[in-house]
Simulated assay, not measured.
Amino acid sequence: MNILVVESYPNSPLGNVGQALAEVGAKIDTIAAHGGEPLPETPDDHDALIMLGGPQSALDDDDYPFLPALCRLTRAFGDSGRAVLGICLGSQIIARAYNGENVLNRPIEFGYLPVSPLPEAADDPVLSGLTAPTPAFHWHKDTVRLPAGAIRLAESAMTPNQAWKIGAKVYAVQFHFEASRAVVADWSSKSAEYVRDLVPDWEARMPAELETNGAVADVLGLELARRWVKVVGA
């Protein structure tokens, strides 16, 4: 199993998804697109594409000129029947690639907040792992209006389109199910001043959040990751 991972921003670890891929011995090729590493022209050498998060918008072509090419590559993976997983910014890139609408600069959704499954998730190979409202880590402002033909799978109080898919193998997930407690702690530490401006009490309550909601979110995240890995090989 050969997986292409495209990083749109530094410090975007695979977390729970990386653990699930390691369990099946997947080969991972990582491209730091934010650093100027070129994207492949076609999906031919890979079974799946993963796109991770970042603070930019999916429309920020001036500062991140690789975005149009990444949209084309995303569409090529999906149109060829290969699996695609977009998380946070990655989900917004999927929306752009499939002619959905990117909605920018909404109020921030941050921290461990519940995500709820929609009826369509019950029979889905991946999102059926979300069986009830469950805390997951969020850190985003932008969201999307869905492309034609997309199927909504999960929502939160602030964001109707928390998880959705196109066809059988293209999955877009707004919440950070990949972000294990170790990843959340690292992000919070490295961006402490920025987070303090957004959520002044986060530093004080983070240890308790990690111990409680973070533990539950890790179980969910690994379950969804393992289910997505199975879809890659289906």
Rank of each mutant, 00 (worst) to 15 (best):
P13D: 14
A69N: 10
E41F: 04
E109T: 13
E120N: 05
N161L: 08
A48R: 09
A97R: 03
Y112L: 11
W139Q: 10
N105R: 15
E23G: 07
H46M: 04
E155D: 13
S180Q: 09
E7I: 04
G35M: 14
P125E: 04
P117F: 02
R205A: 00
P125F: 03
G54E: 10
F177K: 07
G25A: 14
V115H: 06
N105Q: 15
D45N: 10
V103L: 11
Y194M: 15
T131C: 06
N161G: 04
S191F: 02
K27L: 07
I3S: 01
R227D: 00
A172H: 13
Y171N: 11
L14S: 06
N16T: 09
N16I: 07
W139E: 05
A95L: 03
S180V: 06
Q19S: 13
I93G: 01
L67I: 11
S191I: 08
R96N: 04
D79R: 15
L39W: 07
P10E: 09
A48S: 10
W202E: 15
K27M: 10
L224F: 05
C88G: 07
L70A: 11
W164S: 09
L59K: 01
L59A: 06
I108T: 12
L130F: 12
R106H: 05
P55L: 12
M1C: 05
A192I: 15
L130N: 08
S188F: 08
C88T: 14
A215Y: 00
S180F: 07
P117A: 02
A69R: 15
A58Y: 03
R96P: 02
T159A: 08
I28W: 02
R152W: 03
